[in-house]
Computed example of a mutant assay.
Amino acid sequence: MKIVRTVEEVRQAVRTWKAEGKTIGLVPTMGYLHEGHKSLIDRAVAENDHVVVSIFVNPIQFGPAEDLETYPRDLEKDSELCQTAGASLIFHPDPSQMYSPTFSSFINMSTLTGGLCGKTRPSHFQGVCTVVGKLFNIVEPNKAYFGQKDAQQLAVIRHMVEDLNFNLEIVGCPIVREADGLAKSSRNSYLSKDERKAALVLSQSLAIAQKMINEGERDTGKLTLAMTKHIENEPLAKIDYIEFVDWKTLEPVGLIDRPVLNAIAVYIGKTRLIDNHIYE
């Protein structure tokens, strides 16, 4: 496995592989990899001849008051995980390699990005779409792999690929959880012992909604109320949003009568965590 830092090095490797008739999978990440990322790499390795893992903390998807400078980084540990999983190449560019001093071209979307995480992070998905679009152009993969934990991101990327005719397949992969139900996240490393325990209210509240739906409840207002009550019982938790939205349009729904995404964002102390469940 190689680690490269320039666009030209990636393109040279891809040209060689494609000349040999090989298929290429891409796993875009911001690093500090965990078992959730490994599950993406594992699937990519199983479905492609070569796998590129990008490790890049993308500055343009962070807001002014967000954790760009403190976002966890550990390239040595990430490299070991990628090597073990069978990746062929890590692309780890400096920001200057991705964004020149005169950079001024962005990918915007007029649907899907205004609600959920986009409501409080207005520039986030512009940054995500722009960097992912650049990675697609640089790597030219046959398939790219994204986790369902970032469900809105997955929906946005699929829509962007359709709109802009990118010649690749987007593969969504299931959420990977800790034994107690907490969704794997690089930001879990921010949590103190007490906050780590408190963070279980995310998966617990989703489970409450699932149980109610399994028992026949379809009113999203009643489901939201039950989830809200559970989370508000935890002193360290502060709700950002609890939403039930159409899984295709991401527009709010009043009834579970179609494929629906139940997405939540909750602050545990100062750390913002997200989780979701999709009813299909």
Rank of each mutant, 00 (worst) to 15 (best):
A183F: 03
T120K: 08
F103T: 06
K197Y: 09
S88T: 11
I90F: 03
L89F: 12
P122L: 10
G86K: 02
H159R: 15
G86N: 07
Q83L: 15
C117A: 13
V161N: 12
I107R: 04
I90G: 03
G181S: 04
N167Y: 11
I170P: 10
G114H: 12
G147T: 05
H124S: 07
L191G: 06
A183L: 10
G147Q: 05
R158D: 11
Q152F: 00
I175Q: 12
A87V: 06
P122I: 12
R187A: 01
R196Q: 08
M109I: 02
N188K: 05
A155Q: 13
P95S: 00
K134L: 13
Q126S: 13
K143C: 05
Y99Q: 10
I138W: 03
L81H: 10
V128E: 09
L116V: 06
F125P: 02
T102Y: 15
R196L: 11
G118L: 04
V139I: 12
F166N: 02
I138S: 01
M98A: 06
L154T: 13
T111F: 04
V131S: 03
I175R: 12
V156M: 00
M160Y: 07
S110W: 02
K119G: 05
K143Q: 13
P93G: 09
K119R: 11
R187T: 04
F103V: 06
E140Y: 04
S123L: 14
M109Y: 02
T111M: 00
K184I: 03
S185G: 08
N165F: 15
G127E: 04
G133E: 01
I138A: 06
L182M: 10
V131K: 05
Q97S: 11
S186W: 08
S192M: 07
E195Q: 15
M160D: 08
N108R: 14
A155W: 09
D180K: 14
L164H: 06
A151K: 02
E140I: 08
Q97N: 10
S189D: 05
S104A: 13
C173K: 07
L154E: 10
E140P: 02
F166A: 01
I157F: 01
N142C: 02
K193S: 14
P141M: 02
F91E: 03
N142Q: 09
T102A: 15
L168A: 04
V161K: 10
R187Q: 01
Y190N: 04
D150T: 04
G114R: 03
K149C: 05
T113H: 00
N188E: 09
Q126D: 11
S105Q: 12
S186G: 09
Q152E: 03
T120M: 06
H92E: 09
H159M: 10
Q152Y: 00
F106K: 11
G127N: 01
K197I: 15
T130I: 10
S96D: 13
V132T: 12
I138D: 00
K143V: 03
K197W: 08
P122G: 05
L168I: 09
S189H: 07
S104C: 11
Q97I: 14
T111G: 03
A155L: 14
C117E: 15
V131H: 00
K134C: 11
M109H: 00
K149G: 05
D150E: 07
Y190V: 05
M98G: 02
V156K: 00
A151T: 05
G86Q: 07
D94R: 14
Y145W: 04
L191Y: 07
R177I: 05
G181Y: 08
G127I: 07
